[in-house]
Design a protein around this nucleic acid. Structure first.
Lengths: 148, 148
DNA sequence: AATGTAATTCATATAATTATGCGTTATATT
DNA sequence: AATATAACGCATAATTATATGAATTACATT
């Protein structure tokens, strides 16, 4: 399961991706529209801003806007900022590798080997899907193009 | 990331899968060998037993043994018992579906749509891999057949 | 029957995640 | 300059996940 943090992060990025040519969007507006606890969202948006995804402006008329094109923000990028590793076990992680506390010999660990395959499968989809794609899917679903 | 509970569960099942023709294995032995906190492991093994994966016997000479063939226990089964859903968002789960608290219209949710694809990719690997496969991978890795 | 073994049960402690509260700083408008 | 707006910082509460402790029940052996 995704952490709530990550789910909220993606939701916020999607909301901002739909707000491209408009003036910056306030935290409170995103929080209301997406039903996300406002203060929690603040922390998350700061993380996303520090990671370079967002631009923020204080004061009246301020708010948040995307700092990259929606096509350039991939789900895998967002998740690595908010949740950290994509892999299900630390020893199978590409970007956040660390040895499992309880593991004796990682080189011959069948669990690790299996979860490297899981990671690769997951990673493929997450690296193929951008915030723009997510918005595109919504549009298609609204028009009625079948997706599920 | 897998919960520790699930990781420990898989480790225990693999250990028991290597112990097939031998007398039942004690919690303390599994805990020692796999470096798992004993009391936590007890709770986990009970769950696995209640789910039908294990047989337990009290008293002297007692312990745990597999109640199914290692080939029949798939990673997806174990994870559903210990972690619950495989999907990263509840609304994309096949076996543990529930509406996301904050979601307005699930039918047109692009995030859900994307994570259904992630789920399918993950599920494929997890449904193809059994405890026997994990043990087989270990054997292959020990012999030197390349896996990573 | 008595003893030792080992799972089981129930209660509690520790750590991480999720969520709030309150005050401060930066910006725009009047 | 004064005021309203909205992000930012820091502390803390609530909840869930992880882990431990003490007492109990079932079984085998002597």
């Amino acid at each position: 399961m995704l952490s709530k943090k990550t789910k909220y992060a993606i939701k916020a990025l999607v909301a901002l991706g739909k707000n491209l040519d408009k003036p910056p969007m306030q935290i409170s507006k995103i929080a209301e529209e997406e039903h996300i606890p406002k203060k929690f969202l603040e922390q998350i948006l700061l993380d996303l801003r520090n990671a370079g995804f967002l631009y923020s402006k204080k004061g009246a008329g301020g708010g948040y806007s995307l700092n990259k094109k929606p096509e350039e923000i991939l789900l895998v990028h967002v998740m690595r900022v908010t949740d950290g590793p994509i892999a299900m076990v630390p020893c199978a992680s590409l970007n956040f590798y660390h040895k499992c506390d309880e593991c004796e010999d990682e080189k011959t660990c069948g669990i690790r080997s299996a979860f490297i395959d899981v990671r690769d499968a997951t990673l493929k989809v997450l690296s193929e899907t951008s915030i723009a794609d997510v918005i595109g899917r919504e549009d298609n679903l609204k028009i009625g193009i079948i997706n599920l």
